[in-house]
Amino acid sequence: MSLSAYISRDQRSGLVGSLLLSCLLIAVGLLVVYFGQRYQLRIVYAAYVNLLVVLGLQVFMGNANITNLSHSAFMGIGAYVAAICVTPVKIKAISLPQAPWGLNAFALDPWVSAFIAIAITALLAWLVGLIITRLSGIGATIVSLALLVIVHSIFLHRTDIFKGKQAFFGIPQVFDINSILIISVCAIFVARAFRESHWGIQLRASADDEVGARSMGVNVYRVRLIAWVLGSVFLAVAGISYAYFLGTISARPFYFTHVFLTVAMLILGGMRTVTGAVLGTLLISFGLEGVRYLETGPELLGIKLPELLGLSGIMLGVVIVVTMAFRSSGITGNTEIEQLFNRWRR
């Protein structure tokens, strides 16, 4: 029996697309592994973590067309839960002496910790999702924003568990660039598979015409919830990958700056497609490195430039505004990578 008996034409096309995108990711990864320095390795690693976040965003926001701003909070939850589970007891005795519920009295191996982190994040997302998926567009966005604020203030306030503004240190650094490469390739296949799945198609249909989809028997709330929880799994994995690579985390990176950064990535690339998510992430990640360099006030062609704090934020804002004004569906619009190739061939 051939494969095509089991999967649809779109899904086969999705497999091809995912393969192409994976090749791109692996190529960038190999380049930096063989030719890059430590500093560049870190940039690529960060870019791939953000790719996981943006893919997680794409799964819900892109398919359901509801702007979500809480994603960095879920990433933070994933990172902190994994960190609390995996950090050795000896270190926790120093860093979290007053932790409640015996949180500082155990340590698990990284795989179990990661699993627990994903499960807890998904569970919380499911609970929140019960509310958020029922709200209309703007209501959902504002509640997601409220969620971000709530989670952040809990991180800051419960210093006995999360250490607040200080660094949560001592997390075993078990991930390297190869791990993130494997994870992001898997993530691409999953995100694309969801997009072309029965649920993904229903969700996209409901985004275009909610009433119409409903009248065709689509349970809009349910498919939204599925996408929301699946997205949260991506975010948890991103958080875990972040913690397992750096070894220290704090509440700050899981707040507005990161929210804006990743939303800009998704918008620029085009939130309706997985290709757009990848493209946007890579363009902004590497583009911003250039801007950050300018920000520090370097010497160019013998001229000492002034320090330009805030330049990267301005660039991100400009990217969003210009994209929205001239091509609100982002660079890729509705076209996935393999469809683009097909068009060229013809």
Binding site: T67, I267, G313, L316, G317, V319, I320, M324
Partner: peptide, 20 residues
């Protein structure tokens, strides 16, 4: 959502302009 995201972008630009 296009308007909302544009407003986001504008907000970022202005905040960072004040900063800069």
């Amino acid at each position: 959502s296009t308007g909302l995201l544009t407003a986001f972008g504008v907000s970022m630009i202005l905040q960072n302009l004040f900063l800069l």
